[in-house]
């Protein structure tokens, strides 16, 4: 890790003021479970680290009927998982936290960090840049791409969005509140993510001197939601693929649906095709199967990751069936 100066502001505004206007100069420190590892690998070398830990009003999980859930960006995964209201109204979020099999990460990792963590693409982490370039060539297509993207991978970005929380929160129509020097803005969570098209661009739309302050999840009454991830190991491991679904039901019929995939594209992948396959249908094994097929209908696997197409199909199917059972 290179040397850096450390700042720990106590207010949101102060934090924003400590951030540089360009990427690379400063980094935000939340739980640190991603950023510190990147710094140890010299993938990130900020001159200043701005810790958000002492900003009290970024913590906590709040619920208000009619308004829904307000999660401070610095709320830890454990805070979310043990929160009574989350347990009662958003059980899929508890399941999501439990997919990350580490009590240590539960107490360290924050929801903001989970959304804004950087990809785990091994070329990126070995220092070949987010777009994994080597001697003018893109590494993933010809290299080892077993864990890379199968959707949205027409290049030059081949990494996958790593967040376990982003897909389910997007499916639940969450919004994020951002604070920058010129004030705050609230955007749908999916708008926080973007696929970079050239070197220097990031996979987030956050500005270098903005912070995520809150995640707002609308009331979930009448929604059936579920997550299903496929992980090779039962212990702490990265998912090979992930699916989150939220179904608005009318009696037994799906009125509207959102199916969001993780670990398959450079952004959380909002699958219109899968949603379309569900709307107006009564849930059944066949319908779930069809949604899974639809989710991967546009997939363009690379040389080594064709299996992820099948896994994704199954993850969607299972998530839908789980949601159908009333959600877990």
């Amino acid at each position: 890790m290179e040397r850096f100066e450390y700042a720990s502001p106590v207010s949101r505004k102060e934090a924003v003021g400590l951030l540089a206007e360009t990427w690379g100069e400063t980094e935000i420190l939340a739980g640190g479970t991603d950023v510190l590892s990147r710094m140890k690998d010299y993938v990130s070398t900020p001159k200043r680290l701005v810790s958000l830990k002492r900003i009290k009003d970024l913590k906590g999980v709040h619920y208000a009927p009619g308004h829904g859930l307000r999660i401070g960006s610095m709320a830890t995964l454990r805070e979310i998982k043990v929160n009574t209201y989350v347990q009662r109204y958003y059980p899929a979020l508890v399941d999501t936290a439990n997919l990350i099999r580490s009590q240590q990460l539960h107490s360290m990792g924050t929801i903001g960090g989970s959304l804004l963590q950087r990809p785990r693409c091994w070329y990126y982490r070995l220092g070949y840049g987010l777009l994994a370039q080597y001697e003018g060539k893109s590494l993933p297509p010809e290299g080892d791409n077993r864990y890379h993207a199968i959707l949205g991978n027409s290049g030059p970005a081949y990494f996958t969005s790593p967040s376990t929380f982003a897909p389910i929160l997007i499916a639940l129509e969450a919004r994020v509140e951002l604070l920058g020097p010129s004030g705050s803005r609230t955007i749908p969570l999916e708008k926080l993510f973007t696929t970079p098209t050239k070197t220097g661009e990031r996979e987030h739309t956050l500005h270098p001197n903005e912070i995520v302050t809150e995640i707002l999840v609308p009331p979930a009454g009448g929604i059936r939601s579920a997550v299903h991830e496929i992980r090779q190991k039962e212990g702490l491991d990265w998912a090979l693929t992930a699916a989150a679904v939220a179904l608005h039901m009318k009696d037994n019929t799906v009125r509207s649906a959102r199916v969001v995939l993780g670990q398959v594209a450079p952004v959380p992948w909002d699958s219109q095709e899968a949603a379309h396959a569900l709307v107006g249908k009564t849930l059944s094994e066949q319908v779930a199967e069809a949604a899974g097929k639809a989710a991967v209908s546009e997939a363009t696997p690379l040389s080594m990751n064709g299996y992820k197409v099948q896994l994704t199909r199954v993850a969607v199917k299972r998530a839908v069936l789980q949601a159908a059972k009333g959600g877990a």
């Binding site: 720990s8 502001p9 106590v10 619920y63 009574t84 209201y85």
Partner: peptide, 19 residues
């Protein structure tokens, strides 16, 4: 309604001038 308790508040935070 806050569903959580804030940790670590029982101990004094560093008195450093913030920022």
């Amino acid at each position: 309604v806050s569903g959580t308790l804030l940790v670590g508040e029982s101990m004094a935070e560093p008195a450093e001038a913030s920022g």
